[in-house]
Amino acid sequence: MSLWEYANPRKFIATTDVVLPWFWAGTIACLVVGLIWGFFFTPDDFRQGSTVKIIYLHVPSALMAINAWLMMLVASLIWLIRRHHVSALAAKAAAPVGIAMTLIALLTGAIWGAPIWGKPWAWDPRLTSFLWLFLFYIGYIVLWQALDDMDTAADMTSILCLVGSVFALLSRYAFLFWNSGLHQEASLSLDKETNIADVFYYPLLLCIAGFVLLFITLVLVRTRMEIRARRMKALIARERMV
Protein backbone atom coordinates (compact mmCIF):
# COMPACT_ATOMS: atom_id res chain seq x y z
CA MET A 1 0.00 0.00 0.00
CA SER A 2 1.49 3.26 -1.07
CA LEU A 3 1.03 6.77 0.17
CA TRP A 4 -0.12 7.84 -3.29
CA GLU A 5 -3.36 5.91 -2.86
CA TYR A 6 -4.59 8.83 -0.78
CA ALA A 7 -4.18 11.02 -3.84
CA ASN A 8 -7.33 9.40 -5.15
CA PRO A 9 -10.19 11.78 -4.29
CA ARG A 10 -12.48 8.95 -3.25
CA LYS A 11 -9.93 7.38 -0.96
CA PHE A 12 -9.08 10.80 0.43
CA ILE A 13 -12.68 11.63 1.31
CA ALA A 14 -13.24 8.21 2.83
CA THR A 15 -10.10 8.40 4.95
CA THR A 16 -10.66 11.94 6.13
CA ASP A 17 -14.24 11.00 7.06
CA VAL A 18 -12.71 8.74 9.67
CA VAL A 19 -9.82 10.86 10.91
CA LEU A 20 -11.35 14.34 10.85
CA PRO A 21 -13.31 14.02 14.13
CA TRP A 22 -10.11 13.00 15.89
CA PHE A 23 -8.26 15.97 14.46
CA TRP A 24 -11.05 18.27 15.60
CA ALA A 25 -10.99 16.76 19.06
CA GLY A 26 -7.19 17.03 19.29
CA THR A 27 -7.26 20.64 18.09
CA ILE A 28 -9.89 21.72 20.59
CA ALA A 29 -8.27 19.83 23.47
CA CYS A 30 -4.80 21.28 22.84
CA LEU A 31 -6.00 24.82 22.25
CA VAL A 32 -8.40 24.94 25.21
CA VAL A 33 -5.89 23.49 27.66
CA GLY A 34 -2.90 25.35 26.22
CA LEU A 35 -4.57 28.76 26.05
CA ILE A 36 -6.25 28.54 29.47
CA TRP A 37 -3.02 27.32 31.01
CA GLY A 38 -1.06 30.02 29.27
CA PHE A 39 -3.45 32.88 29.95
CA PHE A 40 -4.44 32.16 33.54
CA PHE A 41 -1.92 29.85 35.13
CA THR A 42 1.42 31.34 34.16
CA PRO A 43 3.06 34.25 35.96
CA ASP A 44 3.39 37.68 34.38
CA ASP A 45 6.73 38.51 32.84
CA PHE A 46 8.83 40.70 35.13
CA ARG A 47 9.42 43.27 32.39
CA GLN A 48 6.46 42.94 30.04
CA GLY A 49 3.69 42.20 32.52
CA SER A 50 0.67 40.30 31.30
CA THR A 51 1.24 41.58 27.75
CA VAL A 52 3.61 38.70 27.23
CA LYS A 53 0.73 36.24 27.23
CA ILE A 54 -0.15 37.09 23.65
CA ILE A 55 2.84 34.90 22.85
CA TYR A 56 0.47 31.90 23.02
CA LEU A 57 -1.26 33.16 19.88
CA HIS A 58 1.59 35.01 18.23
CA VAL A 59 4.28 32.35 18.06
CA PRO A 60 2.08 29.43 16.95
CA SER A 61 0.32 31.46 14.25
CA ALA A 62 3.62 32.80 12.94
CA LEU A 63 5.01 29.30 12.85
CA MET A 64 2.00 28.00 10.94
CA ALA A 65 2.05 30.93 8.50
CA ILE A 66 5.45 29.73 7.34
CA ASN A 67 4.62 26.03 7.53
CA ALA A 68 1.50 26.57 5.43
CA TRP A 69 3.80 27.97 2.79
CA LEU A 70 6.10 24.98 3.01
CA MET A 71 3.14 22.66 2.70
CA MET A 72 1.93 24.55 -0.38
CA LEU A 73 5.40 24.29 -1.86
CA VAL A 74 5.52 20.54 -1.36
CA ALA A 75 1.96 20.10 -2.66
CA SER A 76 2.80 22.22 -5.72
CA LEU A 77 5.85 20.09 -6.43
CA ILE A 78 3.79 16.91 -6.13
CA TRP A 79 1.25 18.34 -8.55
CA LEU A 80 3.88 19.40 -11.07
CA ILE A 81 5.70 16.09 -10.92
CA ARG A 82 3.00 13.50 -10.32
CA ARG A 83 -0.16 15.33 -11.44
CA HIS A 84 -2.27 14.32 -8.45
CA HIS A 85 -5.30 16.57 -8.40
CA VAL A 86 -5.82 16.23 -4.67
CA SER A 87 -2.35 17.67 -4.14
CA ALA A 88 -3.13 20.77 -6.20
CA LEU A 89 -6.43 21.18 -4.39
CA ALA A 90 -4.70 20.83 -1.03
CA ALA A 91 -2.32 23.65 -1.98
CA LYS A 92 -5.31 25.74 -2.96
CA ALA A 93 -7.03 24.88 0.32
CA ALA A 94 -3.99 25.77 2.42
CA ALA A 95 -3.55 29.29 1.06
CA PRO A 96 -6.50 30.96 2.83
CA VAL A 97 -5.55 29.22 6.08
CA GLY A 98 -1.98 30.41 5.61
CA ILE A 99 -3.00 33.99 4.97
CA ALA A 100 -5.25 33.90 8.05
CA MET A 101 -2.31 32.68 10.15
CA THR A 102 -0.11 35.43 8.69
CA LEU A 103 -2.75 38.02 9.52
CA ILE A 104 -3.10 36.70 13.09
CA ALA A 105 0.67 36.81 13.52
CA LEU A 106 0.82 40.38 12.20
CA LEU A 107 -2.11 41.60 14.32
CA THR A 108 -1.05 39.93 17.56
CA GLY A 109 2.46 41.22 16.86
CA ALA A 110 1.08 44.76 16.53
CA ILE A 111 -0.92 44.39 19.75
CA TRP A 112 2.16 43.07 21.51
CA GLY A 113 4.46 45.65 20.02
CA ALA A 114 2.33 48.69 20.78
CA PRO A 115 3.00 48.78 24.57
CA ILE A 116 6.46 47.19 24.48
CA TRP A 117 8.13 48.98 21.56
CA GLY A 118 5.82 51.97 21.81
CA LYS A 119 4.51 51.44 18.27
CA PRO A 120 2.48 48.71 16.61
CA TRP A 121 4.61 48.49 13.49
CA ALA A 122 8.31 48.67 12.77
CA TRP A 123 10.20 47.86 9.60
CA ASP A 124 11.96 45.06 11.34
CA PRO A 125 13.17 42.17 9.14
CA ARG A 126 10.84 39.66 10.77
CA LEU A 127 7.81 41.90 10.54
CA THR A 128 8.64 42.90 7.00
CA SER A 129 9.04 39.25 6.02
CA PHE A 130 5.54 38.53 7.25
CA LEU A 131 4.16 41.50 5.40
CA TRP A 132 5.89 40.15 2.31
CA LEU A 133 4.36 36.74 2.98
CA PHE A 134 0.94 38.35 3.32
CA LEU A 135 1.28 40.13 -0.03
CA PHE A 136 2.41 36.96 -1.68
CA TYR A 137 -0.46 34.90 -0.29
CA ILE A 138 -2.88 37.49 -1.72
CA GLY A 139 -1.31 37.21 -5.16
CA TYR A 140 -1.37 33.43 -5.00
CA ILE A 141 -5.03 33.28 -3.99
CA VAL A 142 -6.11 35.86 -6.57
CA LEU A 143 -4.27 33.96 -9.31
CA TRP A 144 -6.16 30.79 -8.36
CA GLN A 145 -9.41 32.68 -8.69
CA ALA A 146 -8.56 34.47 -11.91
CA LEU A 147 -8.10 31.27 -13.90
CA ASP A 148 -11.22 29.30 -14.77
CA ASP A 149 -9.68 26.05 -15.86
CA MET A 150 -8.61 24.08 -12.82
CA ASP A 151 -5.58 22.40 -14.34
CA THR A 152 -4.31 25.67 -15.79
CA ALA A 153 -4.78 27.41 -12.45
CA ALA A 154 -3.03 24.57 -10.63
CA ASP A 155 -0.06 24.72 -13.00
CA MET A 156 0.25 28.51 -12.89
CA THR A 157 -0.03 28.75 -9.11
CA SER A 158 2.45 25.91 -8.65
CA ILE A 159 5.01 27.66 -10.84
CA LEU A 160 4.34 30.88 -8.94
CA CYS A 161 4.82 29.07 -5.64
CA LEU A 162 8.17 27.63 -6.73
CA VAL A 163 9.55 30.89 -8.05
CA GLY A 164 8.03 32.77 -5.11
CA SER A 165 9.82 30.51 -2.64
CA VAL A 166 13.18 31.45 -4.10
CA PHE A 167 12.28 35.11 -3.88
CA ALA A 168 10.98 34.62 -0.34
CA LEU A 169 14.44 33.53 0.75
CA LEU A 170 16.04 36.37 -1.21
CA SER A 171 13.67 38.89 0.34
CA ARG A 172 14.34 37.54 3.81
CA TYR A 173 18.04 38.07 3.26
CA ALA A 174 17.40 41.48 1.76
CA PHE A 175 15.39 42.56 4.82
CA LEU A 176 18.17 41.43 7.16
CA PHE A 177 20.68 43.31 5.07
CA TRP A 178 18.54 46.40 4.91
CA ASN A 179 17.62 46.81 8.55
CA SER A 180 18.84 45.05 11.63
CA GLY A 181 15.88 44.38 13.79
CA LEU A 182 13.98 45.37 16.86
CA HIS A 183 12.32 41.99 17.23
CA GLN A 184 13.61 39.67 19.91
CA GLU A 185 15.39 36.50 18.94
CA ALA A 186 13.43 33.30 18.48
CA SER A 187 11.76 32.24 21.71
CA LEU A 188 12.18 28.58 20.99
CA SER A 189 15.12 26.57 19.88
CA LEU A 190 16.63 23.18 20.45
CA ASP A 191 19.42 24.80 22.38
CA LYS A 192 17.84 24.99 25.83
CA GLU A 193 20.05 27.88 27.05
CA THR A 194 18.23 30.50 25.02
CA ASN A 195 14.75 29.20 25.60
CA ILE A 196 12.14 31.02 27.56
CA ALA A 197 11.47 29.79 31.07
CA ASP A 198 9.77 26.44 31.56
CA VAL A 199 6.60 27.95 32.99
CA PHE A 200 5.95 29.59 29.65
CA TYR A 201 7.48 26.82 27.61
CA TYR A 202 5.06 23.95 28.19
CA PRO A 203 1.78 25.81 27.59
CA LEU A 204 3.42 27.35 24.53
CA LEU A 205 4.31 23.92 23.18
CA LEU A 206 0.73 22.83 23.74
CA CYS A 207 -0.57 25.89 21.88
CA ILE A 208 1.79 25.19 19.02
CA ALA A 209 0.54 21.61 18.86
CA GLY A 210 -3.00 23.00 18.86
CA PHE A 211 -2.25 25.34 15.97
CA VAL A 212 -0.58 22.56 14.01
CA LEU A 213 -3.65 20.40 14.49
CA LEU A 214 -5.93 23.32 13.72
CA PHE A 215 -4.04 23.94 10.49
CA ILE A 216 -4.20 20.29 9.45
CA THR A 217 -7.89 20.10 10.30
CA LEU A 218 -8.76 23.25 8.39
CA VAL A 219 -6.72 22.19 5.37
CA LEU A 220 -8.40 18.77 5.35
CA VAL A 221 -11.85 20.34 5.61
CA ARG A 222 -11.08 22.82 2.87
CA THR A 223 -9.50 20.17 0.63
CA ARG A 224 -12.65 18.07 0.97
CA MET A 225 -14.65 21.12 -0.01
CA GLU A 226 -12.44 21.79 -3.01
CA ILE A 227 -12.68 18.14 -4.08
CA ARG A 228 -16.44 18.32 -3.94
CA ALA A 229 -16.53 21.61 -5.84
CA ARG A 230 -14.27 20.09 -8.47
CA ARG A 231 -16.42 16.99 -8.67
CA MET A 232 -19.50 19.15 -9.10
CA LYS A 233 -17.83 20.94 -11.99
CA ALA A 234 -16.94 17.59 -13.54
CA LEU A 235 -20.53 16.38 -13.13
CA ILE A 236 -21.93 19.47 -14.82
CA ALA A 237 -19.44 19.00 -17.65
CA ARG A 238 -20.49 15.37 -17.97
CA GLU A 239 -24.13 16.39 -18.24
CA ARG A 240 -23.20 18.57 -21.16
CA MET A 241 -21.39 15.72 -22.88
CA VAL A 242 -24.43 13.46 -22.98
Partner: peptide, 15 residues
Amino acid sequence: KALAPIDDAFDEAFL
Protein backbone atom coordinates in the same frame (compact mmCIF):
# COMPACT_ATOMS: atom_id res chain seq x y z
CA LYS B 1 -17.04 12.15 -29.77
CA ALA B 2 -15.89 11.16 -26.30
CA LEU B 3 -18.55 9.39 -24.31
CA ALA B 4 -19.36 10.41 -20.80
CA PRO B 5 -17.99 7.84 -18.36
CA ILE B 6 -20.83 5.56 -17.39
CA ASP B 7 -19.95 4.59 -13.87
CA ASP B 8 -19.99 6.98 -11.00
CA ALA B 9 -16.41 6.36 -9.99
CA PHE B 10 -14.43 9.56 -10.06
CA ASP B 11 -10.91 8.58 -10.74
CA GLU B 12 -7.81 10.58 -10.04
CA ALA B 13 -8.41 13.11 -12.80
CA PHE B 14 -12.08 13.96 -12.11
CA LEU B 15 -13.06 13.17 -15.69
